[in-house]
Simulated assay, not measured.
Amino acid sequence: MKIDFNKDGRLNDDEINVLVSAKELTPEVIDLLAMLKNVSNQDDNWIPVNTNNRVQMVAISNIVGIEIYQNELNIYTNEEQFVTNGTLKDMYEKLKKHHFIQISKSAIINIDHLDYMETAFSGNMTAFLTNDLKLNVSRKYLPGLKKSLRM
């Protein structure tokens, strides 16, 4: 097997193009293609989080919600909480294709972990999530949340 790298300036920064060439489509080639596809899908299910001088790989499906206080992101999962630096906007861009929705200027949630909502103070709502997490839903973001919930 020969492995090679070619730099391609036409690709975006987050794009990788893999081309497998062989004389014939053999079972080995099919297995290699399946492994490459599996690696691609696995990368999409995890997110690296810099915390406590290490990088922690967090399963996206386990993330319940994320809040920001000043420049600290609090990432709440089913099991634990991670504190890292960054912006909510950057984190939301990475997660919005995974059932995440912004519910306020300072929070996003994973809709898959939303248990129920209740009316709160001054027209806002409170989102009750798995692991007993409660986050405020502001009036500005409520229509988007309702649309995501098909309400």
Rank of each mutant, 00 (worst) to 15 (best):
I101V: 13
I30C: 08
V18N: 03
T51L: 00
N38D: 13
V29P: 08
A127K: 01
Y141F: 09
Q56N: 13
I101K: 10
L32V: 07
I60K: 00
N110R: 05
M35D: 15
G65L: 08
N110C: 02
T51S: 13
K97G: 14
L114A: 01
N17H: 11
I47F: 02
I16T: 10
V29Q: 08
S148G: 07
L25Q: 08
R139F: 03
A107N: 15
M125H: 09
E72A: 14
K94I: 08
N17K: 12
L25F: 15
Y141P: 01
Q70P: 02
S104R: 00
D31E: 14
Q102K: 07
S106M: 11
R139A: 04
L11K: 02
T51Q: 02
N62R: 07
V20L: 06
I103F: 03
M91C: 12
T119S: 14
N124Y: 03
E79S: 12
R150V: 13
L88V: 04
Y141W: 05
P143K: 02
T26Q: 10
K2Y: 10
D13H: 10
N131F: 08
T130W: 05
I16G: 07
Q70M: 15
D115T: 13
I63T: 03
I63Q: 03
V58F: 02
N50A: 07
W46T: 06
T126C: 06
Y69P: 10
N6I: 09
D112P: 07
M57R: 06
I101W: 08
K146T: 06
S104I: 00
I111D: 02
N17T: 07
L133M: 14
L129I: 02
L135R: 06
N110I: 04
T51R: 01
I60T: 00
D43R: 15
R10V: 05
V39P: 00
N74H: 14
Y141K: 04
E28V: 05
R54C: 05
F121S: 06
N41E: 10
G65F: 04
Y69I: 15
K105Y: 11
V29L: 10
D4V: 11
I103L: 06
E93Y: 15
V18I: 14
A34Y: 14
S61E: 11
Q81I: 15
L133G: 06
K105G: 14
E80M: 14
I63N: 05
N53M: 05
V29I: 13
N78I: 14
P143I: 04
E93H: 15
N85Y: 12
P27W: 06
E79T: 12
M1G: 13
I47D: 00
M125A: 09
L19Y: 11
D31T: 07
N45S: 10
S61Y: 04
H99V: 05
S104T: 06
V83Y: 03
H99G: 05
L114Q: 01
E79V: 07
N85R: 11
L11R: 01
R150Q: 15
N12D: 08
K96A: 15
M35A: 11
L11I: 03
K134R: 10
H99M: 09
S122C: 10
Q42R: 14
M125G: 03
L145V: 05
K96S: 13
D90Y: 07
D4A: 09
I108S: 08
V49Y: 00
K23P: 09
N52M: 04
N45H: 13
M151G: 04
T84L: 06
L25S: 15
L36H: 05
S106E: 10
M117Y: 03
G86N: 02
L33Y: 09
L32Y: 08
I68A: 04
D132A: 04
